[in-house]
Computed example of a mutant assay.
Amino acid sequence: MKNYQNLKTFEEACKVEGLDPEKVIPDFSCYPEKDRASMIAHSKLVIIVRAANRLANDGKEWIPDFTNSDEWKYEPWFDLEEGSSGFRCDGYADWAAGSDVGSRLCFISREVCKYIANQFIETYKEYFL
């Protein structure tokens, strides 16, 4: 796979990252049942975001530099208001941070952010709700 826009499933993201989708998700059974779906979704999103950023970066891993305030980083913004869908991708934030601890869920570009947020909106729903 050469293009992030061809990334359609978690299993494809695992393939890009050289991971086995059957073995990569930790066992969250020791946590309360109400929290497990969110934890599984977060685990999946970490891999999906990493794969999308790699594909958008000519096959090289992209690691956001949180010491560089000139490097833009993007994260999706979701509207959780009641409405026809109740959960929709509403915008894309760009930002720079001067922090030594950063997000694993940020993107290399606005376009990649927008595509992944929409393609994997159900996974984001599980993560946030």
Rank of each mutant, 00 (worst) to 15 (best):
K2D: 08
K2V: 08
N3P: 09
Y4L: 02
N6Y: 09
N6H: 14
L7H: 04
L7G: 00
T9H: 07
T9L: 15
E11M: 09
E11N: 11
E12I: 10
A13D: 05
K15T: 12
K15A: 14
V16K: 01
V16Q: 01
E17R: 04
E17Q: 10
E17N: 14
L19N: 05
D20S: 12
E22R: 15
K23R: 11
K23G: 07
P26F: 01
P26I: 05
P26N: 08
D27G: 08
D27Q: 06
C30H: 12
P32T: 07
E33S: 09
R36Y: 05
R36K: 13
A41H: 04
A41W: 03
A41M: 05
H42A: 15
H42M: 09
H42Y: 09
H42S: 12
H42C: 07
K44P: 05
L45I: 04
V46Y: 02
V46M: 05
I47L: 04
I48M: 03
I48R: 00
V49C: 06
V49D: 03
R50Y: 02
A52F: 01
N53D: 03
L55Y: 01
A56Y: 03
D58L: 09
G59W: 02
G59P: 06
E61S: 14
W62N: 03
I63F: 07
P64C: 03
P64T: 01
D65S: 01
D65Q: 02
F66D: 03
N68H: 06
N68E: 14
S69G: 11
S69D: 14
D70F: 14
E71F: 07
W72S: 10
W72M: 15
K73H: 07
K73G: 04
K73N: 06
Y74L: 07
Y74D: 00
E75D: 15
P76K: 01
P76D: 05
W77E: 15
F78C: 06
D79K: 10
E81L: 13
E81A: 14
E81Q: 15
E82F: 12
S85W: 12
S85M: 15
S85Q: 13
R88P: 04
D90L: 12
D90T: 14
D90Y: 14
G91C: 13
Y92A: 11
D94F: 13
A96L: 03
A97V: 13
A97C: 14
G98R: 15
S99M: 08
R104F: 07
R104V: 06
I108G: 00
I108R: 02
S109T: 14
S109D: 06
S109V: 07
R110Y: 11
R110H: 12
E111Y: 09
E111L: 07
C113K: 00
K114Q: 10
Y115T: 06
Y115H: 04
I116G: 00
I116M: 01
N118H: 09
F120H: 00
F120A: 02
I121A: 09
I121M: 08
E122K: 11
T123R: 04
Y124C: 05
Y124H: 10
Y124P: 01
K125Y: 13
K125G: 07
E126S: 14
E126V: 10
E126D: 12
E126M: 10
F128N: 08
